[in-house]
Write a protein that binds this DNA or RNA. Structure first.
Lengths: 138, 138
DNA sequence: TCGTAATTAACAATCATTTTTATTTATTAT
DNA sequence: ATAATAAATAAAAATGATTGTTAATTACGA
């Protein structure tokens, strides 16, 4: 099944409208694994859809997040980033160029959660951020 | 050696002035492991030092960060948080009350860094965020 | 095709943080 | 100890990301 069709179904099942803006923003995200900010998304969408507003980008990103279609996260940056890959994975961040690389390794078998967390918390998952410097910036 | 004395020495060695504001902000942080935001720090400092300005809090927090006296980080929140514990440790965040708990477990022996990161990145460290719900919010 | 509620675009507002500027203060040399 | 001065502070304005408001537009069921 096409992912865009899956989105269409999801939207419909939630009684939400299928608008060109939503489809476009979703498509832009699907083809962008560079963890874009709202502004990045806005710029890309604007190329194809010059009349789009920033408000729509923000609203739609929140909609997609609520629907579980994108993951929202912050690094030590002043803006939020969006990731079309909602599967569990981790990140390696270059402290110089701020580029974010995906790390698809599954660490859960190796990371033993401390007992006190298990007792006091209902842990739903964990996220590892590797810090360092990438090849290009070295 | 008192930590406040260590700070005094560090400031002096960097040719920086030892001001009551700096000492107070540092003290507030030392006694606060709840990962306060700049505003949290401001409120606490203001109780003892009512004339303090927000600017000073921000400037001083940046100063302390540059000196390596505090760690700055962001969770999926819209504000930065400050941690007086600069040793490597991890966090457990309650998605309901947003409280942040320290996790002092050393995971480095158990987390095998993927080869491609080792090759492309000079990894300086990693940080694990555990997500879930705390006892009180369950 | 029409009616209507949802969505959008435009714009204003907000919130955290940063910058600017004039005043004050900690320190160093006298 | 005092004065000179470079750094730090307070106050206020500016900025930049994000959110709220409102009126116009549009998707879609009747």
């Amino acid at each position: 099944m096409e992912t865009i069709e899956k989105l269409t179904k999801t939207l419909r099942s939630h009684g939400m409208k299928i608008t060109p803006q939503r489809l476009m923003i979703f498509k832009v995200l699907e083809n962008n694994s560079s963890h874009p900010s709202a502004e990045d998304v806005y710029k890309r969408v604007k190329k194809v859809y010059p009349a789009v507003s920033f408000t729509t980008i923000y609203k739609t990103l929140e909609t997609l997040r609520k629907l579980g279609e994108v993951r929202e996260f912050t690094i030590d940056d002043d803006r939020k980033h969006y990731d079309p890959n909602t599967n569990i994975h981790h990140h390696a961040i270059c402290s110089t160029c701020k580029k974010i690389l995906d790390v698809f390794e599954d660490f859960s078998p190796h990371v033993k959660l401390p007992d006190f967390i298990e007792k006091d918390y209902t842990v739903s998952g964990f996220q590892i951020s590797f810090f360092g410097t990438c090849k290009e910036c070295n």
